[in-house]
Amino acid sequence: MSSALRNGTSVIAFALAIATAGALRVSAQARAPAPVESELDIPPVPGNVARALCFGFHSLLGDFTLLQSIQLLPQRKGDMPAELAGPIDRRLSRLLEYSVDVDPKFVGAYRFAASALPHETLDGKVYGVLKAAHLLQQGLRERPDDWHMGFLLGFLQSYYLRDFPAAARSLAVAAAQPGSPPWVGLLSTRLAAQGGELQLATSLAEAMLAQANEDETRKAWQDRVDTLHMERDLRAIEDAAQRYREMKGVPARSVRALVSAGLLPGAPLEPHGGHYVLEGDGTARSTAAERLRVYGTNENLEIH
């Protein structure tokens, strides 16, 4: 009987303790001070020092700072003024720099930086491009085997920075990596042609043609080589037309007139089977194919 009483008392005491803990928890929660907003920031130790102090766990620290930056990104809203978005941008870029400082081979951090750092504001400015390009240049040095590095850097250089020769070179690096889609190389030659580096574009296209081993790929690269040769001819014709106008004071009427004037060694052969036409304004065109151009670039953006 006394044993049963003892057991009963123990059960009641246990239940009472649970109930008290629950009640005090509710009470404490109700009286709790307002939470202090925690600032997601990088650890105070510099990345290169932290890398040594991780005792071999630096890739885990890189993951941690990347996760922090991913949690931070939603705080930056599209319609946020620059003065509010600025601190978030700075923390974001510092976290991502930290990630690749502690683990320079971290492809995921470079790729996230390329998409998260650049952002346009309502007043026509673009922030984070230079920082992202800087990180991707490091990514290209550290992980040249990953075609995304060259591709993403080339995208930033062409779309935002309008540095087409540099973009073409970055894309050419990407195109040479295993696993890169065939259009990366084609895009590289298009950018090189747009940037005026026709020789670079032609050399790249001829190299890709030489190593292409599928009929479809060979055809695509042969088309690109032909188009680049066409571009070379069109530029030579336009250059000769300019000199003709300077010599004679009137525009040339045809390509044949340029040849007769000794400004061209002969009428160039259009590689697609058409022929070249010289327009009244001095520009040249082919009757068989369009010239290479890069579309969709925006010259009005202010880049930061």
Binding site: S59, L60, D63, L66, Q71, F106, G108, R111, F112
Partner: peptide
């Protein structure tokens, strides 16, 4: 919690 780095996170945590 991450974007496209599942393999890396799991492997890092697992080997760690």
């Amino acid at each position: 919690l991450t974007i496209g780095n599942w393999f890396r996170i799991i492997l890092d945590m697992g080997l760690g």
